[in-house]
Write a protein that binds this DNA or RNA. Structure first.
Lengths: 203, 203
DNA sequence: AGGAAAATATACCAATCGTTATAAAAATGG
DNA sequence: CCATTTTTATAACGATTGGTATATTTTCCT
């Protein structure tokens, strides 16, 4: 009952990893199937389509992998004991991840595609959903802080959510434009300075 | 000594205006020449190339027009009497402009292209320069405030510059993702809350 | 009217896009 | 050893990309 037929010449998981890297660096429309195939171990087109279905399906899998492997590097920081520490650690780790040598600068989801041809609308919508999901995780963390008492009940949760999501996305642009890690960490300090302004009762 | 030859069937300035609109909505790579030509009054391909040279040249002109007609709507806010008022007014007007009905949401320069094919590298570099120029204008305004005394000499100018540039770019993403004007204005309030944290001596 | 000039229209270019049809190659089962 | 199964290789698909060559208008100047 072993597997029949000619054995595959590539490892699906590793190929997906490489595809993620290419999408991360060039975006959805910017990455061509030829370029992807070369990075995925030089597999031929039919093999790629048999394994992943289409460019969009491949991209969605690549994004899923990104979310499960890369984005936790900063999003998991939300599990810090207090809401304030959670947000600050998240931003700090994002600044660090966005400027890691050997990896594309910035976030795949933030930079992978925003404007594009009309036929890539579904991809843009998918990426937007991912971004909204990150914001939602921020929001949930703030609410948790409120429930646990480390965030005053009067804190403007919605505004803080959108604000820190804005900073997070802005950091991707900054990283993409070449901002140094130190400059981005300074941005995080500024952003956390806003905490006192918006949450005055928080000592 | 009047002009010889067949008169042009389109107004160059108006055609450029329409091209800017298309680039603004779809980005550099997302906008096709066919789509551009249709929006520019249906002029034929040779006329377009005779008038603008190439897609990249057209894009650069469109961005130039954007910078001279649209971006002043918020960047001119930097002429407010104090540095703080300047930054706040800029962000506020950006939030408003980015959510103006009938216009594409967000900033052409921020969203027009960031990742892409290798052959559009020069365009990406151009847009990055534009973004860095906006940051530089913020920086200059902070320095002016310092010279005029409304910003303490101890204020971290570089950090503030990058921070507010980050927020400005993040707002473009938020606008593109459908954030309401009110939500973005709340983000501006948060961002200005950081001012006290970073510039404590500023009353 | 006739010629020069400038913009138009039509058709086409090679290249690349994502995708697939066809067929050869490499494995196992009988 | 043949048949079945699965993957590979090669080639091509139609569509679209940015960009042009050719030729036809439409105008002004003489």
């Amino acid at each position: 009952m072993t597997k029949r037929g000619r054995p595959a010449s590539f490892d699906r998981d590793e190929a997906l990893q490489q595809a993620m890297q290419v999408f991360w660096e060039y975006g959805y429309e910017g990455a061509s199937m030829t370029q992807l195939r070369e990075a995925m171990g030089g597999l031929c087109a039919p093999s790629l389509y048999a394994a992943f279905g289409s460019k969009e399906a491949l991209f969605r899998e690549a994004v899923a992998r990104y979310r499960s492997e890369e984005s936790p590097l900063w999003l998991d920081s939300l599990q810090q004991p207090t809401a304030r520490a959670a947000i600050e650690t998240m931003l700090r780790n994002a600044a660090i991840c966005y400027s890691t040598p050997g990896k594309p600068r910035g976030c795949l989801i933030d930079l992978g595609g925003r404007r594009g041809t009309a036929d890539s609308e579904s991809v843009q919508a998918y990426l937007r959903e991912c971004r909204l999901d990150s914001a939602e995780r921020i929001r949930q963390r703030l609410l948790r802080g409120m429930a646990e008492g480390d965030l005053p009940a009067t804190a403007p949760v919605e505004a803080l959510t959108t604000f820190y999501a804005t900073v997070l996305q802005g950091l991707s642009v900054q990283a993409c434009d070449g901002a140094t890690r130190e400059a981005m960490l300074a941005v995080v300090d500024c952003a956390m300075g806003a905490w006192q302004g918006m949450v005055p009762a928080d000592t």
